[in-house]
Simulated assay, not measured.
Amino acid sequence: MVATEPRITFPAIRPVGLTGMLVTFADHLDEAANRAALAFRAAVQDAGWDGIEETSTSLASAFLRFDPLRLAPEGLRARLADLLASRDWSQAPLPTGRRLFRVPTVYGTDLAPQLEEAAAAAGLDPEAAIADLSTARVRVLTIGFAPGQPYLGRLGARWDLPRQSTLTAQVPVGALVLAVRQFTLFSAAAPTGWRHVGQTNFRGFRPEAPAPFALAPGDEMIFPAIAKADFLRLRAAGEDGASIEEIVG
């Protein structure tokens, strides 16, 4: 008889090494789980517990790094369990201080050559695909893979496209790529298995800035379409054309 792993009930609190705790709200990405992770992390930060040294979120989890000499693991677990039980985190309001970024984007052309392939896979012609993608308002679900690089979603169900079976050798900084109902906005030139559908001049990682990561989990983004000529003018001027506004409520 083969032993099976016990089924995890969510939300779940699990240790990560000797100095970490992971609070997980689901075993897959959905809006409610991401909302819960963002709201729960913010609540831990607001609580100001002595001994918490760092917090972060992934797609559906909140991570805490703590000093075990100042905060015992069993005591932290108990506090986390009490905080979890205090409300339905899937219905919690998103953290305050979030921002909306509108980033001009050229879709298709030789700068983003996989738009037509993605559009066909979604059952759309390129013009309809651009109209849909360029008006989608997406959340920064998490930062990962490379410094300052956001995963953004969720897109409509028609964009639940699998990753490619082969790698694209490299996409540039500012590439907007798409798969599994998400955008990723590349902060560094890198290979990818996601489809390159748009190109921006946005830099997610700015090591020279006081805050090197331009985006934070919970921020939102829209990628309005612009002509290639307009994009090239932005690039020549060293500008990204982005506008930023605070999200109220």
Rank of each mutant, 00 (worst) to 15 (best):
F231I: 09
L124G: 01
E53T: 14
P95T: 01
T9Y: 02
D67I: 11
V103I: 15
T57E: 08
P217N: 11
A128S: 15
S134V: 00
T9W: 07
Q114P: 11
S61D: 08
T192A: 05
A237Q: 15
G17N: 10
R7M: 14
G17M: 02
R87V: 06
T57N: 11
I244Q: 13
E74G: 12
E246D: 15
A36Y: 11
A189G: 15
A85L: 12
T105G: 02
P210V: 12
L38I: 04
L80V: 05
I130S: 07
G97W: 10
R98L: 15
R154E: 15
G20P: 05
P104V: 11
P224F: 02
G75I: 03
E208W: 15
F63H: 01
D46N: 14
I8G: 03
L161V: 04
Q182N: 02
P172F: 09
L80Q: 02
Q182T: 00
I13H: 01
L232N: 02
L64N: 01
P172A: 07
R87S: 13
T57F: 07
D125I: 08
E31A: 14
A229I: 03
A128P: 01
R99T: 09
A121K: 13
V44C: 14
R235T: 00
S61Y: 04
D230C: 11
L161I: 13
R137P: 08
L133T: 02
A119D: 01
N201H: 14
D30F: 10
I8W: 05
E127Q: 13
